[in-house]
């Protein structure tokens, strides 16, 4: 069953068209990565899917109903959003921040119920943030902070998680940590994950499908291995490189003007049996 259906979607700022005639479906429980060059409209698409922006033309259906038919509160029961790395102005603690996800469910006096607290406890555990729940969000590292915002999104108890470049300022370890948390949410809780990213290799490792948005309003969507083709990636990102597979995972290696091309021709397109990690670089 498709939980997100986008039909003939167009959007533009002033006169500049950003998205044109975009159509795709996301199945329930799917992990979709949205990639593409700067200005292709990735974040715009996420803002359209989260109801922040309204389409110029076309329709977005969430769980079978037009997105416009949802109230703000009702949409927040379906979709949770994690934005780019963000440091809050005021010093809310981790648990206070995650509890905010339950704001629409607070009682008349503005306090959470026991159920809300239990949901928050599970979200903190799922993201491994319970250990610093009383610390201030602003005092955490970038990776820890993003895990807190993912915990907040999980505490909304929605079927869909939308994430806008959640790992853009993180080192490799913290990037992998975030993707692990998201994959667990997909596999263990059946969440539908839609994630905007610039890192197509990491996305290829975790996502089921990739939506590749190109400049010139072209787009491609499909399983990772179908989308990660050298000619397609080169064309969309205007960069030379090549695709390959290591440990049964597709990847794309870009080659800039001054890149050391040491034996791309000998690059094994399939991992060697003796040592699958033995990549000649």
């Amino acid at each position: 069953m498709s939980i997100i259906e986008v039909s003939d979607l167009s959007f533009g700022y002033s006169e500049a068209e950003v998205l044109q005639g975009l159509s795709f479906k996301v199945e329930q429980g799917c992990f979709l990565a949205i990639a593409g060059p700067n200005g292709a409209g990735k974040s715009t698409l996420l803002n359209l899917l989260s109801g922040i922006l309204r389409p110029k033309a076309g329709t977005i259906r969430i769980a079978g109903a037009a997105i416009e038919s949802y109230s703000v509160e009702a949409l927040a029961e379906k979709i949770a959003v994690v934005r780019q790395e963000f440091v809050p102005v005021f010093g809310f603690s981790v648990i206070e921040t995650v509890l905010m996800a339950r704001t629409p469910y607070f009682g008349r006096m503005g306090f959470e119920s026991k159920t809300d607290r239990e949901i928050v406890r599970l979200a903190l555990e799922a993201t491994d943030t319970a250990q610093f729940s009383s610390r201030r969000v602003a005092s955490l590292s970038g990776g820890e902070r993003q895990r807190v915002f993912i915990a907040r999104a999980l505490a909304q108890n929605t079927a869909i998680l939308l994430l806008d470049e959640p790992t853009s300022f993180l080192d490799l370890k913290h990037q992998v940590d975030i993707y692990d948390v998201l994959k667990a949410a997909q596999l263990e809780k059946g969440k539908t994950i839609v994630l905007v990213t610039h890192d197509i290799n990491l996305a290829a490792q975790y996502a089921d499908e990739i939506l590749l948005l190109g400049v010139g309003r072209s787009y491609h969507i499909g399983p990772v291995d179908d989308i990660l083709k050298t000619s397609r990636i080169e064309k969309v990102f205007s960069v030379k490189g090549f695709t390959g597979r290591v440990r049964n995972q597709s990847f794309f290696l870009p080659l800039g003007k001054f890149a050391k091309d040491r034996g791309a021709a000998q690059m094994p397109m399939q991992p060697r049996k003796s040592n699958p990690d033995n990549f000649p670089c």
Binding site: V72, A76, E77, R83, F86, T97, P104
Partner: peptide, 16 residues
């Protein structure tokens, strides 16, 4: 409280 995190964040948490 939610608005302290910005209008977009608050909206996605169900705040009008």
């Amino acid at each position: 409280n939610a608005l302290s995190f910005g209008a977009d964040d608050a909206r996605s948490m169900g705040v009008n």
